[in-house]
Design a binder for these strands. Structure first.
Lengths: 190, 190
DNA sequence: TTAAAATCTCGACCAGAGTCAATATTTGAA
DNA sequence: TTCAAATATTGACTCTGGTCGAGATTTTAA
């Protein structure tokens, strides 16, 4: 893991071969494969550590008095900025996290769960404030916001959204829409 | 392309090497790479044809009198069933479609655009029916439903949703939530 | 008709992910 | 202490995606 942190950080994920990793760690390549099932799983493990740190960051920045929409936007954008810090790196990670192979499902689930927890915490607070309907199943609702995050990332990687500002705007709009709904309301939301 | 359709269909994408493809097509491997920029792009081209067919299917099955929610569910589930017909195949395709490399962005955009069009068509109809707020930017709203689709697929590939029935239930709930919104309403929707 | 330029085709070659049988080390029972 | 069974380590090897320069083919224009 130390070798991974060094080399991935230095040359990036794609430009680091497993052999190089093994040499840097002073072990044989085969040994690596007896601890990780694939190169991607090393990446996942690497991110587990990084993400724990990012989550702490986010939680400390959350203004408890802000609206749910604002908090959600902060959460999504922080995560977005982290993951796209290095484009190729983020892509590989997202591919493996979002559509994992059987081989890496466990690790990927674990990382994802941590992320979903953040949503649920936020939503619980909002529900207590009355900002959110009481009858919602929060895991599902968490998934709902998670889906916006995936969408934004996909749009970014496909070039449909070009700048971080575009992403932020789109997310803002979608969060708003998610909260108020798409069908006509008799009363306008405040 | 003919060789691809045969071999991918027969042995699957992962088990078909580019060399095998070349041999089956009776051309050199290098020649393939002067028409496609990567193996994944062959997959994308392969799917362009398949998907056009699926879209026709879907549109013919849509009952014009059904509610937007029902139509949307049909659309998402049809697509879901198609893509997960072969798990590994779908995974590779989704990875490349959702988080494409610069190399394949064009192809992937093209395929995706066709898919998004379906959403927009549906939404336009709904807007005319008064089932949808007038002031919505439909591209964004289309993206909104697209995001639910991604989410469902991700949950399926991660094993958070295990059966197609789970997926359908979750999508149903989320579509409902998307339409009515998450914040409390004074009046219940009819 | 011809030959130079532009384009296309090819497969030997390279690099890197992942395998596996051989070897080294550790464990534990007598 | 001993040695056999269990476990861990290793790097040579395989397989495949992708590259590239050499050579074949087509186009163009005189």
């Amino acid at each position: 893991m130390k070798a991974a942190i060094n080399l991935f950080g230095e040359r990036g994920y794609e430009n680091t071969s497993v052999s190089a990793l093994a040499k840097a760690a002073g072990i044989g390549k085969g040994t690596i494969y007896s601890y990780f099932s694939s190169k991607n799983e090393i990446l996942l493990a690497f991110c587990e550590e990084e993400l724990a740190f990012v989550y702490k960051e986010i939680q400390s920045r959350l203004d408890p008095n802000a609206s749910l929409a604002d908090k959600m936007l902060l959460l999504l954008m922080s995560q977005f900025r982290f993951i796209t810090r290095n484009k190729a790196f983020g892509r590989t990670l997202l591919r493996e996290m979002t559509f994992p192979k059987e081989m890496t499902i466990d690790k990927s689930r674990k990382v994802e769960e941590k992320f979903l927890e953040l949503f649920v915490t936020l939503l619980q607070e909002a529900q207590q404030n009355g900002e959110l309907s009481q009858h919602l199943e929060l895991t599902i609702t968490g998934g709902h916001f998670y889906s916006l995050y995936l969408m934004a990332l996909s749009a970014w990687y496909s070039g449909r959204l070009l700048t971080k500002e575009d992403v932020q705007e789109t997310l803002e709009l979608m969060i708003e829409q998610t909260l108020t709904g798409l069908i006509p309301r008799e009363k306008n939301a405040s």
